[in-house]
Design a protein around this nucleic acid. Structure first.
Length: 873
RNA sequence: GCGGGCGUGGCGGAACUGGUAGACGCAAGGGACUUAAAAUCCCUCGGCCUCUGGCUAUGCGGGUUCGAUCCCCGCCGCCCGCACCA
């Protein structure tokens, strides 16, 4: 009895409409059920969705639909990370307004996402470029400013010469702009900063509490924050050699224990002392200039020689007035870490050793391995950085470095220089404040006004929003707001002076994405959040996105949550309780005579076990290249629209969830998609052919007879799939569903042929219902079609997850593998509840065991209950 | 350089974190149905051998254990993050 093939093109829009009309996915804040907030990182509206989006949103949707079936009140919203450079680039290239370009893209992509059948609450949708959204972001900025969490300071910034804007440290990758790829320059500019460093300690400490985050991400953040414990040491300057007025040099060190191994001081070229000394020393000034303009790219740093210049200044050793050390300006000392000055201990630091060897400075070993000999231990080419015991260090000799650290810290704390202690314990962080000023148009305006009399004046909240002007030109590089004829000219809100001017910098787009998850909890509010709603919904229970945001977005969001808490917008500590970083979608590359070729243009053939590729158009052979992330440059992209049009959304979703573990990359292959599509058709065929017989039967589990096999695997699968989805093991859940489908194949064929008894039909009806409900999170449209076909009421999407019967998931008889000397020799079938003695007796009675023992008693019998029997002969 | 991770069939990957290695899928081969093809269904599928049995096998070499893909030591290879951070 053949049924028609399942037709996703007709089916999918039909069910999407049915869900819409039933308003199944609109979430109410006053729903009394337990909440569950699942969120996928919202997309940048670049134009069209790509396969990475499909994977990301398919995973999130499985979680959302599963949790809904489990009885949670699920929040699953969607929005658009809509400010940023590409809109301005499009404006420059195509003469489109960034706003038009962005909203047009959003419309396209919304339609694409809808065609995926995602269970999203579209009623909460917003784009970060909506005035409604950035208005509230400006309110947050003003609150942060009032709370002292925002500063404006002149600083060296990373300048991207292509995008003509400033980048945060986090946005510089290998010395290049994260977006433009251009080599970054250092410039001195006055910029707005969020004081993320105020929370450095907490941001680092609180990582320990994020139990549902990948260790890798936590480690990356911990390293990025870079907490270190050390000592500030103020070295007295030798009066005779010091420039006028200078009396001390402050250094930061994590190794004060090595203070007797010190042989020089090194300061940054920008250090005040260096600048002062350079005033009277042209050679030194030239050296500083050279260092400042040296390359900053990764390659240059790696190969750069350690270079120094003796300033002629000398410092006095804190523990020996007769001991003076030279002060060098060195190219490897950074002004913006610690104090911009170090003491060099060549024996304990490779860089210091290289420097000392180059300039003929003393190398005194001060730590040696515990089993070393102090009389002969020497350092020549390789510094000793491990733990050990102190030597050549006067009163510290024999101590551990740790004890020596404490000793030096307390002795120097007691000495004083000027009015301060000579030594002071200090915790240092690598983390810098977050520079948010961008010299761009398409971003959230920073709501302040500059007045010649009043200085920086915040825009009064009543005057918000500071709206972006629509009439802007993109005919030149740089910031169109700067050259707008009227927008920037305003009266000072404080004194009324008419010639005040607006801040023309806009905020880094990472600001926009740092709180959108909170806005989703009450996007209709006049204030940035409704604290009640935010506190009820947050933290996000499951956040899903790419590993590339491990530092930037996730760290900024954690900062924002703290800042919003400090300003009363919410009262939670961490924004994301569970974090999952999914892998990329990768694809083979193809290279033809004229460069990269798209997969859609290529036909793959297999001959003699070798795969060959050729152009479909004219058969020209094409080289099969490496498997890489889908990218426009390599042309190895597959358009989700094409896949959905030819196979349907369910096939695309199912393939994305199959095979590869979600955290790893998935290789998109035509064969794989076809396999997924075969499964869609197979489920439909099995269910629809048996449907007439099933629809009249009541679902009922069977506990005995052949029908019991059906019920057992159905209940076992139900248990396993629930557990796997719960831990995001989608590929394993898929495997279990294949198993169940395989097991149902023969019984359903019998039922369709009218060759089954009533108990079998009832058991099968239940098993099919289970199957459909389990498939529903992954292939929601197919599930609806099957659900209706077997005559079930309501929508599959609103069915509760069934309970498995514990009695059916355990077998009364089990098969135990029996090993002899650790090698499997056979099986033992025995009652599940048989005790140890019974198992041993039965095992020893087995033929192959008897044979192996040759009549002798076993030396030992190991029985692991429910697991294995091992007979040691 | 520092930090972290990973190596299992032709391929993607399973294996309850010490207990039957290779679930499930893809690819391949054989067969059935068909005038034929597609679709579908059935069978085989790590390697080797003296093949209703046995040996061997989870990057390589050791170790611990009744038993190791899993734990320990030493190599080899690949991937990722940070990068002159004192």
């Amino acid at each position: 009895m053949a049924t028609e093939r399942y037709n996703p093109r007709a089916s999918e829009p039909k069910w999407q409409k049915a869900w819409d009309q039933a308003r199944l996915f609109e979430t109410k804040n006053d729903d009394p059920r337990e909440k569950y907030y699942v969120l996928e990182m919202f997309p940048y509206p670049s134009g069209r969705i790509h396969m990475g989006h499909v994977r990301n949103y398919a995973m999130g949707d499985v979680v959302a639909r599963y949790r809904r079936a489990r009885g949670y009140n699920v929040l699953h919203p969607m929005g658009w990370d809509a400010f940023g450079m590409p809109a301005e680039n499009a404006a420059m290239q195509n003469k489109v307004h960034p706003k038009d370009w962005t909203y047009k893209n959003i419309d396209t992509m919304r339609g694409q996402l809808k065609s995926m059948g995602l269970s999203l609450d579209w009623s909460r949708e917003f784009a970060t470029c909506d005035v409604d959204y950035y208005h509230r972001q400006q309110m947050l900025f003003l609150d942060f400013l009032a709370k002292g969490l925002v500063t404006r300071k002149s600083s060296k910034v990373n300048w991207d010469p292509v995008d003509m804007t400033v980048l945060a440290n986090e946005q510089v990758i290998d010395g290049r702009g994260w977006r433009s790829g251009a080599e970054v320059e250092q410039r001195e500019l006055t910029q707005w900063f969020f004081k993320i460093t105020d929370f450095a300690q907490d941001l680092s400490d609180a990582l320990d509490g994020l139990g549902e985050w990948p260790d890798k991400v936590k480690l990356m953040q911990r390293n990025w924050i870079g907490r270190s414990e050390g000592l500030l040491i103020r070295w007295p300057l030798d009066v005779a050699s010091a420039p006028g007025g200078e009396t001390e040099l402050e250094v930061y060190t994590t190794r004060p224990d090595t203070i007797f191994g010190a042989s020089f001081m090194a300061i940054a070229a920008d250090h005040p002392l260096a600048k002062k000394a350079a005033e009277t020393n042209p050679a030194l000034a030239a050296f500083c200039h050279e260092v400042r303009h040296g390359g900053t790219s990764a390659a240059e740093i790696e190969t750069a020689e350690k270079k120094g210049f003796d300033t002629g200044i000398r410092v006095v050793h804190p523990f020996d007035p007769s001991w003076t050390l030279p002060v060098y300006v060195a190219n490897f000392v950074l002004m913006d870490y610690g104090t911009g000055a170090i003491f060099g201990c060549p024996s304990g630091d490779q860089r210091d050793l290289d420097f000392a060897n180059k300039y003929g400075l003393p190398v005194v070993p001060v730590v040696m391995p515990e089993d070393g000999d102090a009389a002969t231990f020497q350092i020549t080419e390789e510094a000793y950085v491990d733990d050990g015991v102190m030597i050549n260090s006067r009163f510290l000799n024999g101590k551990t470095p740790k004890a020596a650290f404490e000793e030096v810290a307390s002795l120097l704390a007691a000495k004083s220089i000027g009015n301060r202690p000579m030594g002071e314990k200090k915790v240092n962080f690598r983390l810098r404040d977050w520079g948010i000023s961008r010299q761009r148009y398409w971003g959230c305006p920073i709501p302040v006004i500059h007045c010649a009399d009043c200085g920086v004046v915040p825009v009064p909240k009543a005057d918000l929003p500071v709206k972006l002007p629509d009439d802007v030109e993109f005919d030149r590089p740089g910031n169109p707001l700067d050259r707008h004829p009227t927008w920037r000219h305003v009266a000072c809100p404080q004194c009324g002076r008419s010639d005040a001017r607006r801040e023309t910098d806009t905020m880094d787009t990472f600001v926009d994405s740092s709180w959108y998850f909170a806005r989703f909890t009450a996007p209709w509010e006049d204030d940035p959040t409704d604290p009640k709603a935010a506190n009820a919904w947050l933290p996000v229970d499951q956040y899903i996105g790419g590993i590339e945001h491990a530092i930037l977005h996730l760290l900024y969001s954690r900062f924002f949550t703290r800042a919003m808490r400090a300003t009363g917008h919410l009262d939670i500590v961490e924004p994301f309780k569970g974090l999952f970083t999914q892998g990329m979608v990768v694809h083979e590359t193809y290279k033809g005579p004229d460069g990269w070729v798209q997969p859609a243009e290529v036909r793959i053939e297999e001959a003699d076990g070798r795969r060959r590729a050729a152009l479909i158009s004219d058969g020209t052979p094409v080289e099969i290249g490496s498997i890489e992330k889908m990218s426009k440059s390599k042309k190895n992209v597959v358009d989700p629209d094409d896949i959905i049009a030819s196979y349907g959304a369910d096939t695309a979703r199912w393939f994305m969830l199959s095979d590869s573990p979600p955290e790893r990359d998935v290789i998109w292959t035509e064969a794989g998609v076809e396999g997924a599509h075969r499964f869609v058709q197979r489920v439909w065929r099995l269910v629809s052919e048996a449907a007439p017989a099933l629809s009249g039967a009541a679902p009922k589990a069977a506990t005995e007879g052949p029908a019991a096999d059906i019920s057992k695997i159905a209940h076992k699968t139900l248990k396993a799939v629930g557990e796997e989805i719960g831990r995001l093991g989608f590929n394993k859940a898929v495997a279990r569903l294949y198993e169940l489908t395989n097991a149902l194949q023969a019984p359903l064929a019998d039922i369709a042929a009218g060759k089954a008894d009533a108990a079998t039909v009832s058991a099968a009806r239940q098993a099919v219902e289970f199957l459909v409900v389990m498939l529903a999170p992954m292939m929601p449209h197919l599930a609806e079609e099957c659900w209706a076909e077997v005559g079930c009421a309501g929508l599959a999407a609103e069915q509760p997850w069934p309970q498995f019967d514990p009695a059916l998931v355990v077998d009364s008889e089990i098969v135990l593998p029996v090993q002899i000397n650790g090698k499997k020799r056979g099986d033992l079938t025995i009652a599940r509840d048989a005790d140890q003695a019974a198992v041993e007796k039965a095992a020893l009675a087995l033929d192959f065991v008897q044979k192996a023992l040759e009549g002798k008693a076993p030396r030992k019998v190991i029985i692991v209950p429910q697991r294995i029997v091992n007979v040691v002969a």
